[in-house]
């Protein structure tokens, strides 16, 4: 399952997608939990009883701003979360 956490509004589309199939058997030892300086990720048991990473509810409506430290509007090269996720489950839409 591809879980898109985030929103779309007048200023753009801000989603962090997590490919749960790549996430279930995490080979990176859940590195996303500590990689994100804001601690946005958590591990939950989803509706199909799989343990997967997910963006915490409190962050899903303000991603454009919460991610701005790693991603200033001037541009960025690498993101801590996508680099830490070696299975490549985490992707950003913007």
């Amino acid at each position: 399952m591809i879980a898109n956490n985030g929103y779309k509004d007048g200023s753009g589309e801000f989603y962090i997608s997590i490919d749960t199939d790549k996430c279930i058997d995490c080979s990176a030892d859940r590195a996303c939990l500590t990689a994100c300086p804001k601690g946005m990720f958590e591990i939950i048991t989803d509706d199909y009883d799989d343990e997967v990473a997910c963006v915490k509810k409190s962050f899903t409506r303000s991603l454009a701003f919460d991610c701005s430290e790693c991603k200033p509007s001037g541009g960025y090269t690498t993101l801590p979360c996508t680099s830490a996720c070696t299975p490549g489950a985490i992707k950003h839409s913007w």
Partner: peptide, 12 residues
């Protein structure tokens, strides 16, 4: 009926 991809907009 199993979800393969989803997104939600509850911001606005």
């Amino acid at each position: 009926g199993k979800v393969t991809n989803f997104l939600m907009n509850d911001k606005c």
